[in-house]
């Protein structure tokens, strides 16, 4: 009895904190459904609920193209990040080889380099490589030092017993990787996937610069062209960002399932 009460109390406390924490998000969503007057008055709930802001955005002919561009680029890049990051992370996390520390330092060095700082030279490099807009965007993001760091860290933490048992059974490197390591690393993999999905989805500058026409824009960039900079009508901004966020939330919910499965997998012997 006491046990259950404790859980309920704890849940309520977490709920209160969560409510406070969610407030700005909540305000963003309700703001997206307000009319001009209510926005300016900073009311929390709209006097009249209106989907005007959304209609204005969805009417935009090119929104379908923007959405599919974003899905394609983000999807492929995230996949690439995982595959490449897994391989490199596994090597750094569990394999022994000379020059490991140098590799680590090399990768960290890249994390430190400010992207905005070398933007022009990166652009010129991509141009010299002769890549199209989509290819440039994908190649640009697919080698993620953060992914490697997270995955290598996680791989390191996998208890040796699993691997040893498998080796005794005669498993070779590839089998160990595919049958033990990757399944056990699912929580980290989903973390990497979610985080990169939202980063790349939200990436603003590069799609703008590489796009050859505004049909080639990604969703955030396209939406930004609908918003007037000189007047602070944030109704459309809120609507745009709510729309833009939905696919990422869906991805997160989907991945959550894998996250949960990963937990179960980790305790399997």
């Amino acid at each position: 009895m006491r046990f259950h009460l404790g859980r309920t109390i704890r849940t309520i406390i977490v709920g209160l904190i969560g409510a406070l924490y969610t407030f700005p998000t909540f305000w963003m969503i309700t703001s997206s459904m307000k009319l001009e007057k209510d926005l300016v008055a900073m009311k929390i709930f709209p006097k009249t609920w209106s989907l005007d802001n959304y209609y204005k955005i969805i009417e935009q002919a090119k929104i379908g193209a923007w959405f599919s561009n974003s899905m394609f680029i983000t999807g492929i890049t995230t996949l690439g990040v995982i595959v490449i990051g897994l391989m490199a992370g596994y090597a750094l996390g569990r394999l022994k080889f000379p020059g490991k520390n140098i590799m680590y330092a090399y990768i960290i060095a890249g994390m430190v380099i400010p992207g905005e700082g070398i933007m022009i030279t990166v652009f010129l490099t991509m141009k010299d490589l002769g890549l199209g807009a989509k290819a440039s965007l994908i190649i640009l993001h697919v080698a993620s030092a953060v992914a490697v760091m997270i995955l290598s860290n996680y791989f390191k933490g996998i208890a040796n017993e699993f691997e040893e048992a498998a080796r005794i059974d005669g498993a070779g490197e590839i089998k160990i990787l595919t049958h033990i390591m990757i399944p056990m690393a699912v929580p980290a993999i989903t973390t990497v996937a979610i985080v990169h999905f939202s980063w790349i989805w939200n990436d603003f500058l590069w799609p703008l610069i590489f796009a050859t026409s505004d049909k080639a824009y990604t969703l955030p960039v396209g939406l930004s062209t609908l918003i007037n900079n000189s007047d602070l009508r944030f109704g459309p901004v809120m609507a745009g960002s709510t729309l833009s966020v939905i696919p990422v939330v869906v991805m997160f919910l989907l991945f959550q399932r894998y996250f949960m499965r990963g937990i179960a997998g980790a305790t399997l012997k």
Partner: peptide, 14 residues
């Protein structure tokens, strides 16, 4: 295993 990462990373960042 490290190769794909290092190659892309070197071209795009280093």
């Amino acid at each position: 295993m490290l190769l794909p990462y290092v190659v892309v990373y070197t071209i795009v960042k280093i």
